[in-house]
Simulated scan of single mutants.
Amino acid sequence: MLKHLLVLIELAPEGLARVEAAGFKAHVALSAQDKVLSIKALGPCIHAVLTNGSTGIAAAHIAALPKLEIICSLGAGYEKIDLDAALARNIVVTNGPGTNDASVADHAMALLMSVVRGIPKADAAVRLGQWAKLRQPRPMISGKKLGILGLGNIGMQIAQRGMHGFGMTVGYHSRRPRENTTFLYFETPIALAQWADFVIIATPGGAGTLHLVDSAVLHALGPDGFLVNIARGSVVDTAALAQALVQAKIAGAALDVVDGEPDVPAELVRLDNLVLTPHIAGRSPEAVAATVQLVIDNLNAHFGGQPVLTPVSLER
């Protein structure tokens, strides 16, 4: 029997085609209004939902899908999926750990180099015929102290790039020290920021990391420090970051994610010591293909009566 899949996130046409070729009828609902209308019209026949961590799915929407059996999160995050509601219905939840780690780590280093070396500003100046305007010295990347907030799989890949590619000394803060690593462990984000030249955020999202980077952390990073966020916008206190950039309390920042995206606060858009990209760190062709394939594999396993490959634990 054809299984109906409600898709709540943007998926490239080739990705949708692969999902449908695997035997699933995809119904795309990206806006809040489309979501409401789709659930009202199709709710009784939806068997699966495809979402991601920053979009998620709320308890009320889960309740309106009586045949829902599985929720798949595209990518590693799942912080806005109501796990309690899923558990109450015995709905399986999956995510995509490891599918885009290398892509995200690559982008983190690209953002770091862009903001530290002032590449976007220099490019804009040259295009305006202002060759000499931005030829003042910019800091090096090599040999500096790299602080990583969250040493999971992505954090480890960033650390390896920093250490082996740029000869950096690497320090990190996580909930607990990670075994089998020689990187320096710091008990708090403030202590990490005080030590580091650059801090890259690679934590999960959710309530446990909400505004983990606040005014105190930014003050500790200092006027020569740079911040990069490829995790979730909620990890950074946006107002505190804007103030720190305006007042030169830190040297610069680069964000692939912002709180409340895709809406970007006006106070950020105006800043010339900030580099912004639209949540594309994990969107290399290789990573996208891998994440979509894992969704298909999880859906096939579940509806084939087999354990899913990457289940999210629903026990709280």
Rank of each mutant, 00 (worst) to 15 (best):
G225Q: 04
D272M: 05
V199P: 09
R270P: 09
G225H: 05
A105R: 00
V308D: 02
I190C: 13
L16G: 08
R283K: 13
R178D: 03
P177W: 03
R138C: 10
G225Y: 11
S73F: 01
P189F: 09
L212I: 00
I200Y: 02
K25S: 14
A32M: 12
T188S: 12
A254I: 06
R161F: 04
V246T: 15
L184R: 15
L276K: 01
G15K: 05
M156H: 14
R178V: 15
V235G: 06
A59Y: 05
E286V: 09
A105I: 06
Q33D: 14
N52F: 07
S103P: 02
Q160F: 13
G43V: 00
D237S: 09
P97Q: 00
L268E: 03
F183A: 03
K40P: 01
V170G: 09
D263M: 14
H279T: 03
P285A: 05
L299H: 06
H302Y: 13
A41N: 14
H4A: 09
D82R: 02
H211V: 08
L314P: 02
I201C: 07
A281K: 02
A193D: 06
G53S: 10
A122E: 02
S38W: 08
I190M: 12
G150E: 01
T169P: 06
C72F: 02
A207Y: 11
N180G: 07
S313I: 11
G43S: 07
T277R: 01
V115C: 05
G205C: 08
V104T: 04
A58M: 12
A196P: 02
A59T: 02
P137Q: 11
M140F: 12
A231Y: 09
L241P: 10
D82G: 10
V257Y: 04
A193T: 07
M1I: 11
A110K: 00
S313T: 13
A239F: 08
T51K: 08
M109F: 12
A26Q: 11
V264S: 00
A48N: 04
I154W: 01
A102E: 12
K121I: 13
I9D: 08
H211T: 04
R178A: 10
G304M: 10
L83M: 10
N273S: 12
E10D: 14
L37A: 15
A281C: 04
T94F: 08
P13R: 07
L8A: 10
Y185G: 08
K144S: 13
V288A: 05
N229F: 00
K144E: 07
K121S: 15
R161Y: 04
N273Q: 07
A110S: 11
I62R: 00
D224F: 11
N300H: 13
A26R: 01
A110H: 00
R178P: 04
L74M: 14
R175C: 03
H61A: 13
L255W: 08
T182Q: 15
L294P: 00
V126Y: 11
H4K: 13
A248R: 15
V115M: 05
Y78V: 04
L149A: 06
I57F: 07
D214K: 10
L294K: 03
A202S: 15
G162E: 04
T51I: 06
V28C: 12
P177L: 08
A63E: 15
L37I: 12
P137E: 06
H302R: 05
V228Y: 00
L146T: 02
A266R: 14
